[in-house]
């Protein structure tokens, strides 16, 4: 059987979650691998959430926010846009490949875009294989655990 990645989608309430709702209302089929957790704004996404997801066995994390300028709280997504690249640098050091975390903007009317992203992300993570911290970076994996717990 092929590997079925487990992907967490952390989506902001106003645009990307609504966009995912629209994909549903329009009956757009996409990979069932993406499971959605709602936050009010993408700016609420604490790097810990991403670490926790990997610690709990996720293979990928998709973070969704409103398009730049469209954040319901005016600038939350700008903060996300600055935080995630930093987080990715850290993940890299922990041995978590770049392709496992993605930050994307999806508007409330872009159901098709969400569908495409969910499929893309699933394939991308499938290609990377299951998330297993590499052996030499075991301390790193523990670090992940420690960070997530803390």
């Amino acid at each position: 059987m092929s590997f079925e990645p487990r992907i967490i989608g952390i989506l902001c309430n106003w645009c990307s979650y609504t966009g995912a709702d629209l994909a549903g209302t329009s009956r757009m089929k996409y990979a069932p691998n993406v499971r959605i957790v709602r936050v009010m704004c993408s700016g609420r996404v604490d790097p810990t959430f991403v670490l926790k997801a990997f610690q709990q066995g996720a293979d990928g994390v998709l973070i969704g926010g409103c398009h730049p300028g469209d954040c319901h709280y005016s600038t939350g997504n700008y903060k996300t846009a600055r935080r995630i690249p930093l987080l990715k640098k850290m993940l890299d050091q922990l041995g978590i490949e770049d392709g496992r975390v993605r930050l994307e903007w999806v508007s409330a009317s872009e159901g098709d875009r969400f569908q495409a992203l969910a499929n893309e992300m699933t394939e991308q993570v499938r290609a990377l294989g299951p998330f297993r911290p590499a052996a030499p970076s075991k301390p790193a994996a523990m670090e992940v655990a420690a960070l997530a717990a803390g």
């Binding site: 009010m40 700016g43 609420r44 604490d46 939350g76």
Partner: peptide, 28 residues
């Protein structure tokens, strides 16, 4: 919006109804 809850280095800010504990439990 919870933007500051994600930024607080001391974890002193609680984003009510979207607390760290709630979201982490949901992820789990």
């Amino acid at each position: 919006c919870g933007v500051v809850a994600a930024a607080c280095p001391s974890d002193a800010i609680v984003s009510r109804h979207f607390t760290d504990a709630q979201i982490l439990a949901e992820i789990e």
